[in-house]
Simulated assay, not measured.
Amino acid sequence: MIDLPLIAAGVMALAILFYVVLDGFDLGVGILFPFAPDDTARSTMMNSVAPVWDGNETWLVLGGGGLMVFFPTAYAVALPAFYMPIMGLLFALIFRGVAFEFRHGATTSKYIWDRAFFGGSIVSAFMQGLLLGGLIQGVRVEDQRFVGGLFDWLTPFSVLTGIGVVCGYALLGATWLVLKTENATQTWARRAAMVTGGGVIVAMGAVSILTPLMSPAVAERWFGGINIIAFAPVPALT
């Protein structure tokens, strides 16, 4: 018998994976933007993602639309629970897109759009991390309705996951630049990858330790029976 909910969840998981990998590297390029060696390097960085960045964001639309179509109850719970970070994410993506387009034609105002591109990228990444942390923490639901507060998602743990996502996207951006650039920009990108990779390792370790301490259900799954043997390699491999 075909398990349609499982197939739908697989489609959504695939869309989210594609979004994280594909839009992650161009968000990462934006996060690294102000730290580039010079304006020539920044132009090279932006040109490296210009052909693909707009299409990469369509995976986010598929993920959100899929949640509404396949799992309307979950959509109805998640939207009010994470209304503010979702709106922050969308506005940051719009702001980033405007900055991307305006920078190409700017001359005297280029520095303004450089800052705007960086701001839109880092806010987008951080908001996604807040969403991830809020989902891990869970939301209060009664009768299939969200009954929590407007800022339940904002906790030290969600801030930690937000920082981790920023580091992860910056790492993706740095490795993309290693592939797509050369000479001084490539050398700088390799150094940036080492720094951001260290940040990812620290964040991953902290989240892996705090999650079972924060959630009894996760702790039971991790440490119940032989589960620890099966699950322990996951954070290390990640």
Rank of each mutant, 00 (worst) to 15 (best):
L213C: 02
G197S: 05
L62I: 15
D143E: 15
V69A: 15
F117M: 13
P72V: 06
A192S: 14
W53V: 11
G162K: 05
N183D: 15
L60S: 08
F71N: 10
L213N: 08
M84W: 12
F95T: 10
P235C: 13
V98T: 06
A193V: 03
I16L: 11
I228G: 05
M46P: 00
L93S: 00
I31N: 03
L32G: 07
G105Y: 13
P216G: 14
G55M: 00
V21K: 09
A230R: 10
I94Q: 08
A193E: 07
N56M: 03
G149P: 11
V159D: 10
V200I: 01
I2C: 09
A50N: 07
V195A: 02
V178I: 15
T107K: 12
P72Q: 08
W176T: 09
P37H: 03
R140V: 15
L172E: 14
L210I: 01
Y83N: 06
V166A: 04
Q137A: 14
M87S: 05
T185V: 03
I2Y: 13
D152Y: 00
A15R: 10
G88M: 06
I163M: 08
V77R: 10
R140K: 12
V20P: 11
L32N: 11
N227I: 01
V159G: 11
L210A: 02
F82E: 05
G148C: 02
Y75F: 15
L132D: 01
V165Y: 01
L67E: 10
A9P: 04
L22D: 09
Y19K: 00
M12K: 04
T44P: 00
V147T: 14
V11R: 03
A184M: 08
M87R: 01
V11S: 12
A189F: 14
R190Y: 10
A192I: 12
F33H: 14
R115F: 07
S48N: 05
I122V: 14
G133N: 02
L89N: 09
L154K: 07
S121F: 07
D3S: 11
D3L: 06
G173N: 05
G55K: 00
I7Y: 14
P233N: 11
H104N: 07
G28K: 03
A99S: 13
L67S: 10
E182S: 14
N47L: 11
Q186N: 09
V202W: 03
L32F: 08
T107F: 11
G88C: 04
G138C: 13
G168R: 02
I2Q: 12
M194C: 03
R221M: 09
I136R: 05
G55L: 01
P85A: 12
E142A: 15
A78V: 13
G105I: 04
L62Q: 08
A219D: 14
I86Q: 05
R221H: 12
S208F: 08
E57L: 00
M45S: 09
A203F: 04
I136P: 07
F25N: 09
M194S: 12
E142H: 12
F35W: 15
P34H: 04
G149A: 11
E101Y: 04
Q137F: 09
M46Y: 01
V29R: 00
E101S: 11
G65L: 07
F117P: 06
A74I: 05
L67R: 05
G66P: 10
P85I: 13
G149W: 06
R96Q: 04
S48W: 02
I31S: 02
F117I: 10
A203M: 03
S208A: 15
R96Y: 00
Y19V: 00
F35M: 14
Q144D: 13
F35T: 13
A184V: 06
